[in-house]
Amino acid sequence: MQALPSVNLENPHARRARAGAWLLIAPLVIWLGLFVVAPLGILVAYSLASTGELGQVEFALNFDNYVRVFDPIYLKIFGRSIAYAALTTVLCLVIGYPVAWYIARQRPVVRNRLLLLVMIPFWTSFLIRTYAWIAILRSEGLLNATLSASGAIPAIFPEPLALLYTPTAVVIGLVYAYLPFMILPIYGSAEKLDHALVEAAHDLGAGPLRVFREVIIPLTRPGIAAGMLLVFVPAIGMFAITDLMGGARVSMIGNVIHNQFTKALNYPFGAALGVVFTLLFVLSYALLQWRGRRRDRG
């Protein structure tokens, strides 16, 4: 990052600018206070409560809910959620990187059109797009109809593919849902990349693989990091795709939390799961930041 010109705090103009800045970020601060800090406080308060016979929340300070979070079954579900989210992130990176790179290398007109194509799916509701995938993957759906019309069934596949309501379907759904969140930040980095550096590396005798590894990847690293975060974080808490495309057979942590609030009538336990889940993010984010700082210094 480039160094910003330092602000002289004694300068009266600078002070006015500071007041103006507060005014500018006031909506954000209020928003964060109302919809992030306050709800988090409520979540923590609930997580320390217990439930009455009808599932009413009774505020009697206790840590039972947190003890239950560390029951092996929930740890297993946490682990599975992380695995699914990690697989989704890797697949998004592998698929999204070449796309972002390709778009960034085009003429500006083409580039904007291609970017528009990446964003068009957002014009439709996420749930509708998920239902569309159900229509594609189901056993009498679009995919199997195409395969049998083209003769691939039974030539290659002995019978229609039973993809829907399997873990594979969940991963397809997750990758589809989050791919744009990987492409856009990487595109941002790749577009800014000075191509002269790539050419210089070639001129100095580096092969394509070496250029990619030692020049292109490091220069687009901020985009990669942002993309991975933008995919991994929401993917880990997803519950709609596991329910709709996975047939609710395999739960992720989002499903378990959702269930505590809608069916099991255990707000406090759901809240405790939510708090642990949030802490997990804060921890991993802090770890990433710390490592990043160390790398920058080193």
């Binding site: 159900i134 189901r138 056993s139 759906g141 829907l164 309501y165 329910d243 047939g247 609710a248």
Partner: peptide, 15 residues
């Protein structure tokens, strides 16, 4: 699959 909201969908679709 487990589906409370619309179990008919999977039956109609032949899944």
């Amino acid at each position: 699959l487990f589906d409370s909201d619309s179990p008919k969908t999977a039956l109609l679709g032949g899944d």
